[in-house]
Amino acid sequence: MMAISTFSNQRALQKYNTRDTISAYALVGPSLVLLICLLIGPSLAVFAISVTNWQFGAQSFSFIGLQNFRELFDDRVFLSSLSNTFIYVAVVVPSVLGLGLFVALAIESRKEFQAFYRAVHFLPVMATLAAMAIAWEALLHPTIGLVTRLAVQLGLGSWNFLHDPRLVLATLCVIGVWQHLGYAMVLFLAGLKAIPSDLYQAAEIDGVDHPLDRLRYVTLPMLGPVIMFLLIVITLKALETFDTVAVLTQGGPENASELLLHTLYVESFQFFRTGYGAAMTVVFLLIVIAIIFLQAKVLDKRVHYS
């Protein structure tokens, strides 16, 4: 085969390629337009709005630089919201992963009632959280609550889980664990199923026969990718906690249950301080991105095998 391709068939080929590209863009076009208009564009717009003093409904606004951000870090509500959010994430994420793995191991260890236990633990993942928050409120209610009554009857005194500033964040954490536990459990169950039995047998011959050793030398390392994935997903879900705060506490009492997304909502859509809300949104977004990158960087190298 010599270089037979003449100028004209080069052109024909090029035309062919162009037609391919056009049809590809016809397929991808709607996504691309919407992606830019509804996702990428608005995300960038948040940055732009965050450096203005815009209040929704106001006739004019002006560029104020980083004023909003400076104000944020003097804002007691925002600062306690920020620290509450970190505490919330730091409690919920390890608890969900730990308990989720524990429940998954317990379910997987024997055949009886596997499907039943799995279904029960998965229910909160499906249930409308706003409605379930109301159910939790009824459960923890000072007069009609099952839990509070039980506490009284067991002589543990009376508790006001949702209105005591020392208890309210912990209560939200418990509900957060309740909500996400099933998700972690289901992914752990899938991860456990995917571990080849050969590996456990080889480990047994190698002398790994204590259950804790088996967990350390085989199960946990093999679950590495699942743990990594859950760490990111549960962290994001915890950061995005909104419904329980909005329904149960509105951030109170004394801002003790103020979480980032709720503060952002109040500033932006109840006080309509749009520029200020946008600055808060930027902080929220930066935290999300930082966490994703941090976890991806730190953990990625250590958990991918194949």
């Binding site: 080849p196 047998q201 047994e204 011959i205 002398g207 030398y217 095998y305």
Partner: peptide, 21 residues
């Protein structure tokens, strides 16, 4: 006697190497 104590070694079809080690 448990496998560990039988003083046997085994090579598996899949090799069963620990992928993370």
């Amino acid at each position: 006697v448990r496998p560990k104590m039988r003083n046997v070694a085994m090579v598996f079809q899949s090799y069963a190497l620990y992928p993370y080690m």
